[in-house]
């Protein structure tokens, strides 16, 4: 379950932010990823709960995942951006380049980004 490692990487980065502020609690973390990153949102959330279970500042916090557009790079013409809607019927994750029509494309499978974190801060 690689979602556990991913949740752990997210928590580590949020902890660094928490140290910079006078944080009472982390309330909500929003991450974004494309649908082609082998991430099952339910498993990611489950892993997050397991990791933060005994972390006082993360108590009752939530991790939400938003889906964003996939990004491809074309081997033939160096286009980088959204693929056409049409994928290869035979090979999943081989997408058509909208610029030159090549199917020889690489898909960025590590787009997951920590977008925002909502923190409950003490004003003192």
């Amino acid at each position: 379950m690689h979602e556990y490692s991913l949740a752990s990487a997210i928590v580590t980065q949020i902890e660094e932010i928490v140290e910079k502020y006078n944080v009472i609690r982390v309330k909500k973390i929003i991450v974004s990823a494309s649908p082609y990153e082998m991430i099952i949102p339910d498993l990611l959330q489950e892993a997050y709960k397991i990791i933060t279970h005994e972390m006082e500042k993360f108590k009752d916090s939530e991790l939400l995942m938003e889906i964003k557009a996939a990004e491809i790079t074309c081997i033939d013409c160096d286009y980088t951006g959204k693929p056409t809607e049409e994928g290869d019927p035979e090979f999943a994750y081989n997408f058509l380049c909208p610029k030159c029509g090549s199917r020889d494309t690489h898909i960025n499978m590590k787009q997951m980004t920590i977008e925002t974190v909502d923190l409950e801060l003490s004003e003192e």
């Binding site: 949020i14 502020y21 990823a33 980004t113 920590i114 974190v117």
Partner: peptide, 11 residues
């Protein structure tokens, strides 16, 4: 409640 924009790759 303060929302921080992080915009960092998880990996």
């Amino acid at each position: 409640i303060k929302q921080i924009s992080v915009k960092k790759k998880a990996y």
